[in-house]
Design a protein around this nucleic acid. Structure first.
Lengths: 204, 204
DNA sequence: GTCTATAGGCAGATAGAC
DNA sequence: GTCTATCTGCCTATAGAC
């Protein structure tokens, strides 16, 4: 082991960190290998050693992001028991990303979908399907115990939540105002509460 | 006037049409002057004659889109009187865009915001501010006559609506399923209806 | 695993003829 | 207004030395 000791895969992790930040702020078509290389002070060729082409890098990015998200969802589920709290925790995952002045990685890729190579498209869709599955489960639970109320199908409601949060992120970043996301998320989730439990405050 | 007669500004309009389609599907960083030139069978240099640089083209694109949207909002307001119907009409403007298999131009630009030249950033923000202004007015009207109900401020509710619809568009395009947008929009607007008028149907 | 060098392509933009 | 030709720069990707 040399002086410049590094754990196995540490370079890969650093590359993914920088790339994730860049894609989350500028998009997949808005960053280059040179950007990542410069920030890590390595050569572009070194990047190509770890990720032969940009599509490979993109797929790895989505994969790590998706599994990290899944882990966070599991953790959120363990910390809470009722559906509304779990939905709140779901929204806070988005908030966390936004606090780093980034768009959701997959929300960004959803916008660029038409320009993405097929493997990245598939991975992006997978992210949203997993999210939908998790939300569907929570919504059904809340529907059963009466803490959540919605019209239409559970899957529709789940997609509505995902879309609304992604869109709220987009606007919050545009206006450079995190509270825009917070109040939007609040509104969206409030719309799922049974009337009895809904706050009736209205300010102008 | 020659055989290849063309009305004043027709070429400009054609350029904007093609560019708008490309940006709406692939994003501002996902299309080139060459793409537009090829589709119109003119040279790239001809494009540069009408729009000296890409930023100019982008600003023109947003300007036309914004004023067309504003006109449609005015028309929608004349066709209807009550707030819920007007909100419905607002959502249908988005649906119209989606039917052409495009993302909202400014929703797309919101995602790419970090990479945009300042004039385009400003124009994009302006689009959303105008939308918010219109929605705020309609929401206040509905709040006054009791046809619409929401917690928090009117501006928050307006932004929530915009964000939710933009996000729903993003997902609908991703899944290649327009009905995803329609049901999401329905859910969002249903959440603004007073309990008494809200449908209680729930399917799984 | 990392480097330098370079290939090969495409981007936005300009010059100048017609 | 539109063209061809060209400049310049950046991009992804590869070859081959260390």
């Amino acid at each position: 082991m040399s002086e410049s000791y590094s754990r196995k895969g540490e370079t890969v992790a650093q590359i993914l960190d920088v790339a994730e930040k860049l894609v989350g702020s500028r998009g997949f078509n808005g960053f280059s290998y040179a950007d990542v290389a410069n920030e890590l002070k390595i050569s572009r060729a070194a990047l190509h050693y770890h990720f032969a082409n940009k599509s490979d890098l993109g797929v790895a990015l989505i994969g790590r992001y998706t599994s990290r998200f899944a882990d966070a969802l599991d953790a959120a589920e363990e910390r809470s028991t009722d559906a509304p709290t779990r939905l709140q925790a779901y929204a806070e995952l988005y908030l966390e990303v936004l606090r780093n002045e980034r768009m959701c990685l997959c929300g960004m890729l959803a916008a660029e979908y038409e320009t993405l190579p097929t493997p990245m498209r598939d991975a992006t869709v997978r992210f949203f399907v997993e999210n939908q599955t998790w939300l569907t489960r929570v919504l059904l639970q809340g529907s059963d115990d009466g803490t959540v109320e919605f019209s239409g199908s559970v899957n529709e409601a789940a997609r509505m939540i995902i879309g609304s949060l992604e869109g709220a992120m987009l606007l919050a970043r545009l206006f450079g105002d995190i509270s825009t996301f917070q109040t939007s998320a609040y509104h969206v989730l409030a719309g799922l509460r049974p009337e009895a439990e809904r706050p009736s405050v209205r300010t102008r």
